[in-house]
Design a protein around this nucleic acid. Structure first.
Lengths: 295, 295
DNA sequence: GTTGTGACATAAAAATTCTTTATGTTTGTG
DNA sequence: CACAAACATAAAGAATTTTTATGTCACAAC
């Protein structure tokens, strides 16, 4: 990759001439001939209608007008050269920016990105987590991973994990409040609710219980928390029963810190979808393909 | 005179594309065709080795790298356009800069420049007065007016006023300390001396008295002052006798506030010389010719 | 499903700019 | 007087920029 400064025409020529006080030395520094420098500066003077240099056989000096323009041009050359260096440095390691919710970021995406970076140490992945996802597809990110139904996303979206939910709690909680052999048994235990603004896209306890013919309004011992991370933390603290999404709680189920204590409810038309940006870099494509194949 | 912005190549093109979010609209704003804009930005991206815009059918958006370069380019375009405007404005009224000593500036040049500007109200004359005149011909001025002998100056120098010196004082001082019928009479009166660093180029009291066969060292009642303005002020305050240079004290002699009280000493090879700069503007030539003809 | 519109990309030709070569002028120095 | 150095000009050649012509793709309207 070239490290040459950008070609910015007469700006660099005039800056050199002003700084060196000599058209000939400026030409030498820039790899041009002296008439080329003379020609360029003369052209600027014609456009401006003002003399920029006082020429003599001993070299050249800036006029008052030349001094004014020189200040502006010199700072411009400096700042463009700095920006050139900065853009080349930052783009050497193309970053992949992925937009998703906090829960998915923490429990599904972060562990996998950690694994991916073990294979691609040079890759830089930025996870942009947010609560409000309404404008997710407007964000200037390389990909978005969002929960919803098929019709919520463009045709280019691919299903990462379908929604498959199972009630979970710690073994200790199970001993104290269990067993939960019948869905009706859940109605008497404290439940952990994910609070969302507006209508929830995710399965709720109310929906889960209704799938088994149980109607149970929000009880006094229930807890409402506004991020899925807090839900899992509360469950681990034995504050209640949580709904566990396959994919997000797998790690805790594997460790045994949480156990599945009820039947699974699956909504195959809903789940986490991968929505790639139209203009994805090669690193982005590599990561997304890897994530899909890992699942 | 053209008021068009300077042609700064791709800088203005990229700035417009980044600001408007559209190559087509940028082309329209700049009076180019859309392929011309596409070509220019593509060329910069090739030099940089980095993509600057994310193009789509809905228009274009800056990439992260593009944002970095855009900031630098936008501020450069602004500052160059401002400098362009400033250089055109300041050069509309070309200033004439004249370098001289304080005394000559105050008593000879300022009154004449005031008269000149009544005839040429648009002319802008800057008088650069200084005490140390050693590097006077090195200064970046349009002309210098300096005291000295013929051989002190280049051939292009022209004599403005030869050195012609007469003792002066106020009428009141004359009544108290006069009359001064004989040069020896001056030896007993307080004298005002112009203090200069190094050997004085101007006539001194010692030299004036010696011209008439009088030897008189510096007396206790004498005053030494370091600018000719202070000399004249002290004379008007009746603190002593001053040497009066024709041309500098004419105004006071005409008013009667000072009177000539002794014989005149002239050194025709010495005086105030006009040294023009090799590259004089037309306004400079107009002013200098006017000053010479006015004398 | 078809058609039209708009934005960007590409190729080739034409126009313009930029650079070099050759040479001239002026000034300063030895 | 000769030579060197700095800047200027003209002309030829090289390179860049722009326009014209056309293509591709996405989106909206019918």
């Amino acid at each position: 990759m070239s490290q040459r400064p950008l070609d910015i025409g007469w700006l660099r020529i005039f800056e050199a001439a002003g700084r060196l006080g000599s058209l000939t030395r400026a030409a030498h520094e820039l790899g041009l001939t002296q008439p080329a420098v003379t020609y360029q500066i003369k052209r600027v003077e014609e456009q401006l209608g003002v003399s920029l240099l006082r020429r003599s056989q001993g070299g050249s000096r800036l006029t008052d007008a030349g001094e004014i323009l020189f200040q502006a041009v010199q700072s411009s050359v400096e700042s463009i050269d700095k920006a050139t260096h900065d853009t080349r440095r930052t783009s050497k390691v193309p970053a992949v920016r992925i937009f998703t919710d906090f829960g998915f970021a923490a429990f599904w995406l972060m562990p996998r990105v950690t694994d991916f970076r073990r294979l691609h140490p040079e890759a830089e992945v930025h996870i942009v987590a947010s609560q409000g996802l309404e404008d997710a597809l407007e964000r200037d990110t390389d990909a978005a991973m969002l929960f919803g139904a098929r019709e919520d996303f463009p045709d280019t979206a691919r299903l990462l994990i379908p929604e498959c939910v199972v009630p979970v709690c710690t073994p200790g909680f199970l001993e104290r409040f269990g067993p939960f052999n019948d869905p009706a048994d859940f109605a008497s235990a404290p439940l952990l609710h994910l609070e969302t603004t507006g209508k929830s896209r995710w399965l709720t306890w109310a929906t889960w219980l209704a799938a088994f013919g149980v109607t149970r309004p929000r009880a006094q011992g229930d807890l409402g928390l506004n991020t899925y991370g807090f839900i899992i933390q509360a469950a681990l603290a034995e504050q209640g029963l949580a709904l566990g999404w396959r994919g997000l709680v797998d790690h805790h189920l594997d460790l045994g810190s949480l156990v599945a204590v009820g039947p699974e409810v699956t909504r195959k038309d809903r789940g986490y979808w991968l929505v790639p940006s139209p203009t994805a870099s090669s690193t982005t494509s590599t990561l997304l393909d890897w994530l899909i194949n890992e699942t």
